[in-house]
C-alpha cells in the first residue's frame, strides 16, 4: 500500500492531464487547471519543509556553538524579524502582505532587491576570471568559444560608432539567430525528448526513484 497508492495517484493524475488535452470539453478541460492548482498548493506546503530544514541546521549550529555560529544567529534573527514584519503586514492588508506600502514591501524594495542584484552583479567579476581560464585559445573548441563570446559581447554594446562595429552588431545578431540557435535547438530537442521518455516511464510506473 505504501508504494501502490502513490503509483496509482501518479498514473491517474498523469492520464487525467493527457485526457484533458485530447478532450477539450467540460468537464475534462477543467481537470487540467484543477490539477495544476493542486500541484501549486502542494508546492506551497513543500516550501515549509525547506524553511524548517534551513532553520534546524542553523539553530543546531547556534546550540552547539560551532565555528561561525554568530552568522547562523544573524540568519535566524533576520528570518524571524522579516517573518514578524510579514505577519504584521498581512494583518494590516487583509491577508496580502506584499501590498505596495506595506512594511514587507519596504523590506523587498530595500533589502531583497539590492542583495540579490548585488550578488548577481558580483558574478560579473568571477565570470571574467573564469573566462580568462576557459578562453585561452589552446584548442579549436576553446578558440570558437572565445570568438563567439567576443562577437556577442562587442556586438551587443559597440565601443564606438563606425563601420566595423556596425558590422559586428549585425554579425552578432546573425550569430545569435542562426548558428547559436541551431545548436541550442538541437540541445533543447534532445532534452525535451529525454523528458518525454522519462515522463512516460513515470506515468506507467516503470520509473519509481521519486518514491524513495
Amino acid at each position: 500500500m505504501r508504494r501502490q497508492i502513490p503509483l496509482i495517484l501518479t498514473f491517474l493524475t498523469g492520464i487525467a492531464i493527457f485526457i484533458a488535452f485530447f478532450i477539450p470539453h467540460k468537464p475534462f478541460n477543467e481537470v487540467q487547471d484543477i490539477l495544476l492548482d493542486w500541484a501549486i498548493i502542494i508546492a506551497g506546503f513543500a516550501l515549509l519543509l525547506g524553511i524548517h530544514s534551513l532553520l534546524r541546521k542553523h539553530i543546531t549550529h547556534i546550540k552547539k556553538k560551532d565555528g561561525g555560529w554568530g552568522y547562523s544567529l544573524i540568519l535566524t534573527f533576520f528570518f524571524v524579524g522579516v517573518f514578524t514584519v510579514g505577519i504584521f503586514s498581512a494583518i494590516q492588508y487583509k491577508g496580502y502582505s506584499l501590498t505596495p506600502g506595506s512594511l514587507l514591501y519596504f523590506v523587498y524594495d530595500y533589502m531583497v532587491i539590492p542583495l540579490s542584484a548585488t550578488m548577481f552583479a558580483l558574478l560579473a567579476f568571477f565570470i571574467a576570471s573564469a573566462a580568462y581560464r576557459a578562453f585561452r585559445a589552446r584548442r579549436l573548441n576553446a578558440t570558437l568559444l572565445l570568438i563567439a563570446a567576443v562577437v556577442v559581447m562587442l556586438g551587443r554594446v559597440p565601443i564606438m560608432e563606425n563601420a566595423f562595429f556596425n558590422f559586428l552588431s549585425r554579425f552578432s545578431d546573425w550569430f545569435m539567430f542562426i548558428p547559436q540557435m541551431a545548436a541550442k535547438r538541437g540541445i533543447l530537442i534532445g532534452v525535451a525528448l529525454g523528458a518525454f521518455a522519462m515522463s512516460l516511464r513515470i506515468i506507467l510506473g516503470i520509473e519509481r526513484t521519486y518514491l524513495q
Binding site: 493527457f18 495544476l36 515522463s199
Partner: peptide
C-alpha cells in the same frame, strides 16, 4: 509520497502532451 506522487504525475502529464505540442 502521496502528495509527491500527485505533483510528479501532474508534471509528467504536462510534459507528455503540452511540452511535445
Amino acid at each position: 509520497r502521496w502528495p509527491i506522487a500527485v505533483s510528479v504525475g501532474v508534471a509528467s502529464g504536462l510534459v507528455v502532451v503540452q511540452y511535445m505540442q
